[in-house]
Design a protein around this nucleic acid. Structure first.
Length: 267
DNA sequence: ATGGTGGGACACCCA
């Protein structure tokens, strides 16, 4: 089973690119972020025709918004609102794989604004609070006896490792790579003992990115990227994950998203 | 220190 995560930056504008992605990667589940699309105008028909009749969406007008597309039916779907906002940043679904459910938590974590200081930038405070609330919710879930095998993925808007950014030194005070965010993300990762799948397949000392700014003259040549998109799995799933990749070429497609899709294969 | 680009809704927000 192949699961893809992609910050699409407008699903309506880039509907053709999603179809290209389907042809290219032949995924079973596609988790989209930044759909920027209300639920009633989501382009479902095109995706159904391409083999994805099952769509779970948590969209709002204009910005944010997440959606999960699947070849397989969902045995469960729900979403949680964070920080008292209905801003479309989480979609939970469950699919059955070899007779047992796999929970898929599709997240779009707040970007956090420009200043890494909650006293002067409330967006940064929101990002920190959002991650704390995720941690609290998953801690509760992990205490349940029959907690399902789970995948947590999406645009977490934090690049934690030294080689998850083009220059760790230059980005120390840049939101997405500050020590406080990295610490908050680690706290979340440790609650359920999630495994960051990417770094099992790509050594920690190798540069690995999933996002390149629109502002670069030549994103590919400059290659000043960050790994903002993540796929984590609970320990009971770890062994079954047999492949991981970033579809870097998608960043070079016509009218691209600034994020590339990331994916895993589960045996 | 600054401004560079892109998307959506609608005069300015999000990233």
């Amino acid at each position: 089973m192949r699961i893809v995560s992609w910050n699409i930056n407008s699903v309506r504008l880039r509907e053709p690119l999603v179809l290209d992605l389907i042809k290219k990667l032949k995924p079973d589940v596609i988790c989209l972020q930044e759909t920027k699309c209300p639920n009633d105008s989501f382009p479902e028909k095109a995706f159904a025709k391409a083999g994805f009749p099952h769509v779970a969406k948590n969209g709002i007008k204009g910005y944010h918004g997440v959606a999960t597309l699947s070849r397989l039916p969902f045995v469960e779907q729900s979403y949680i609102n964070y920080c008292g906002k209905e801003d479309g940043r989480h979609m939970h679904t469950s699919v059955e794989h070899k007779g047992r459910p796999i929970a898929i938590h599709n997240f779009y974590v707040p970007a956090g604004g420009d200043e890494p200081d909650r006293e002067i930038n409330e967006k940064f405070g929101h990002k920190q609070d959002f991650l704390a609330e995720m941690t609290k919710n998953f801690k509760r879930q992990s205490k349940q006896k029959d907690a399902p095998a789970s995948v947590l993925l999406g645009d977490l808007n934090i690049a934690p490792g030294e080689h998850d950014v083009w220059s760790s030194k230059k980005l120390q005070k840049v939101v997405s790579h500050t020590p406080i965010e990295i610490e908050t993300l680690a706290k979340l990762q440790n609650t359920l003992d999630w495994e960051d799948v990417s770094r099992r397949f790509v050594p920690a000392e190798e540069k690995l990115y999933s996002w390149w700014s629109y502002r670069a003259k030549d994103w590919d040549a400059a290659d000043k990227g960050r790994r903002l998109d993540h796929i984590w799995v609970t320990p009971d799933l770890s062994e079954a994950v047999e492949n991981y990749g970033v579809l870097r070429e998608a960043r070079g497609w016509e009218r691209p998203s600034d994020h590339a899709p990331v994916y895993i294969d589960i045996a």
